[in-house]
Amino acid sequence: MKNVMLATAAVAAMGLMAGDALAQARDQIRVVGSSTVFPFSSLAAEQFGRIGEFPAPVVESTGTGGGMRLFCGGVGVDYPDITGASRAMKASEWENCQANGVDDVTEIQLGFDGITLAVSLDGQPMDVTRAQLFQALAAEVEVDGEIVANPHERWSDIDADLPDVEITVLGPPPTSGTRDAWIELVMEEGCDTFPAIADLAESDEDRHAEVCQRMREDGHFVEAGENDNLIVQRLVSEPDNYGIFGYSFLAENADSIQPAAIDGVEPSEETIADFSYPVSRPIFVYAKNAHRSAIPGLEEFIAELTDDRAFGPDGYMTDIGLIAMPEERRAEVREAAESGATFSPSE
């Protein structure tokens, strides 16, 4: 009998709590989005909460694509206010946003993030070109004018100057924004240096994209998951392995791993900021303008994100690995963020 009463009470209590939740307006800002942006947005959220005027925003790492889906789901307290992205919003995502009534979105660039190829300090330093990286990591490469399955087993098979060790590169899975950026900035740039592949661009565009974008699957490129710390640990224990991850992990682990130079340039804050290091990408957050008046503190949080003490050269985001933009560009971004300029995809 007691159990029956307990059960009834429990169900009633649940009902009450659920009802309460539905009625409740939201008093904290919700941020979703890319795992690359997460360290920066969550740090800004924490700093913002410390001022004490508004509660700290709740930040969730959902990946760029997942964040866009949630963000573009609609307008209202059930949908996030801001999403982080390690690439610009795609036209398809923008259309999805429009279809759900999210038609006024502001793009805010926080800065840049470099993607690094690194190896343990016990391993061999390397200076590779993007063409060589393409030859090492693509599923199909050009050999003597023919496009064949990638025959390269060791780095020295590609160029005698490269280390004589087996090619093993740990990298992010296809769901990752880092992987997208790596393909765009390294693989696609590298593949067009080969005449037979470059010719495909005119004759057979789909085939060209396939050759340029497919990573090899014969064990030389290893999908090591989204956790960059695990890649760092594996690099330390396997000095012959190379790994691909964001610059902030390199900066934090500089006592155990070293970067490879790409096209002759080593990644550093300076080389990423002035674009001489080729593999850097902008990172963004997108804010929903319809929420600005409805969610308390959203306006102020956007101002916090674009304050120089956050994303300036001496800002706290910069301290943990964000690469700051030049002064004029920061002023432009701040201006656009404050006025709530409406974003529309350029392509």
């Binding site: 709590m17 309460d20 939740a21 409740q24 959220a45 509660p55 700290a56 709740v58 930040v59 969730e60």
Partner: peptide, 14 residues
């Protein structure tokens, strides 16, 4: 979504 970054101890079940 229970992997959110929350800097305060929550005050209710929701």
């Amino acid at each position: 979504g229970m992997n959110a970054f929350v800097t305060s101890v929550g005050d209710s079940m929701t």
